[in-house]
Design a protein around this nucleic acid. Structure first.
Lengths: 189, 189, 189, 189
DNA sequence: AATGAATGAGGATTCATTCAT
DNA sequence: GATGAATGAATCCTCATTCAT
């Protein structure tokens, strides 16, 4: 029963299904058929809405980044001091929504795809820049010239903990956030 | 031109070609045909020697870990103090041999494959354990009970810098090593 | 030209093509490509509908058994006496539909495949049981305790004549049926 | 260590290995590599001695027929009366050497191959003719003009029992032979 | 005589994508 | 809007056969 106004619903279902499928299979070797099936529609419709597999993947990546960005903004909204803001930025990375096996796995796979796909790379760079900019903004206030170097270290550490999480080596989000904050504390001394 | 005793030569050529091919293409979507061609032989021969694609990949992974392990041992051999040994362990991770775009890229892809393939996961776990054990052994001498926590932080940071390197964000091996050592220095204070 | 409701048509076409191809080539070394081509579709579609080569083969086998079963039922329907029913069972085996070079050849090949494939073996056992049960039911009425032994002999003879037919040694279906009936007549005396 | 005079030994080993491999695998999908390995030599040597796969198969077929022919001659040598000679011919078909799963299976597969391969067909026709001739020679003495028809029935029955044996439905050679002789007895009455 | 290195054709299978309905 | 029928390219893998040594 075709309906009007289904587009946003279908797209959202496909994006969600893509992340779930990648996360569950642990690889990018995910078929459009499997994604469509999980999203409750035919593969033809998936193409109709997205044009192709790559675009479905990119939409999924974009979605993950949006969720992440929203999480950061939400957490930042309730933060008043610099310290609280740093905590907000860091803990957003390990927030429940982002720190689920599916999402971590999808994330890792997007890192790989960024090596090949310019669009995915661009999205990733946006995330990198935004994280760096957020961190820099706060760190400048308390550690001045050392801020850039600290930001890079922190950003790398977050990625590293994320990767480790994909193997279940970092089961606790709070623990991961604390690990990062500990390094920040030492660095800004 | 069939010859005797070609097996080790062919295997080495295939392993090298696999790493190069994965590194260059930036993905695991590499065909046995492409690998074989680069290694200067037919695809049939590649199967003859390895049995299948997965085993070729695993051999490549194993090779990378062997090179890495050798590098660590070499660097440790010339290190006398605890500090020197820590430097050796860290800088081995970023040694020229390991810190090339091809190798970094292959490495990242193996992380992904470990999500799916039990054998690759096992190999990766071996690497993780060895790195952790090496770090712990030295850190225990200078920071006692904090050693495990520091090891985990350092290991994650190394992985994170590695990932970043796959995007060219960490162009200088020495700089990467220094970033890690700085954190160690602060932690062991 | 994609259409709706093509599945049964395609499946039937593939089954028919499979039997024809096996029969004509005289071996199970028949490619999915050849079958599909003969059935007027791509090899991909054949897989789409059947899942794989084995299942195509089994469907063909099942079809042959169905045709045979239908033939038996049809002939039995018009038979009133025990003698007529025995004639019906026997002549069904050599009915025009079953006694064509293609079908005979396919049949012989399925016997071979049953050695390897459990599903095919199961289908064959069903045929064996049914034939035996049909024969026993009639023979019990006229030869009592000797019925099982006669059934086994008759079943083997039918198979033997079938095999011989695959070499053109038994050109006449009526002649083959008569050969079997002669043995029955002697046995039940 | 190459030696002289190895040819007959090698050929025999290959023939034996071929029958065993076909019998065990239950199909003609047997590789030259597997046969050679079982025969304790390289695949190259198998080609050296036989020229190709088809010829290896034919040699195996020929061997089976030779063993069968020898068996018939042996049994006939000790038979004095017509009845004894008929028993000899029939029981030779089910003699231990011929009535083993391996051999039965190989035999069935050769029937299939005869559909395709003219040489194999020729060999099979030779066997058919010889069996028929042997039976006719004896039956003429006791049933005159009915002899040809009886021969055909008996030959088909032997083949049928053989086929059934490939499924383990005729476990006892003596029982199989008796089944055939019973039919002969009834026919010559 | 013997090996096994090497090739390359061939085949099953998968899958993104297109398109008639 | 929605389906799923249909294609065909791509890929892994097998294997008979050849040939240098």
């Amino acid at each position: 029963m075709p309906k009007v106004g289904m587009e946003p619903i279908r797209r959202a279902a496909l994006v969600e299904a893509t992340i779930a499928e990648i996360g569950q299979s642990g690889s990018l070797d995910v078929t459009v058929g499997a994604i469509s099936k999980r999203a409750g529609m035919s593969s033809g419709l998936a193409h109709h809405y997205f044009g192709g597999k790559d675009q479905i993947f990119q939409a999924a990546m974009r979605h993950i980044l949006q969720v992440f960005g929203r999480e950061v903004r939400t957490q930042l909204a309730g933060a008043n001091t610099t310290r609280e803001r740093l905590e907000a930025i860091v803990s957003a990375s390990f927030a429940a929504q982002n720190f689920q096996p599916d999402v971590i796995n999808a994330w890792l796979n997007f890192y790989v795809q960024a090596q090949t796909n310019a669009d995915v790379l661009r999205l990733l760079k946006v995330y990198h820049r935004r994280l760096r900019s957020n961190l820099l903004h706060e760190l400048r206030k308390i550690s001045g010239p050392k801020a850039p170097e600290i930001s890079d270290t922190v950003a790398a550490l977050i990625d590293g903990l994320y990767i480790r999480a994909s193997f279940g080596d970092v089961p606790d989000p709070a623990r991961a956030a604390q690990t990062v904050l500990d390094v920040i504390d030492l660095k800004v001394q």
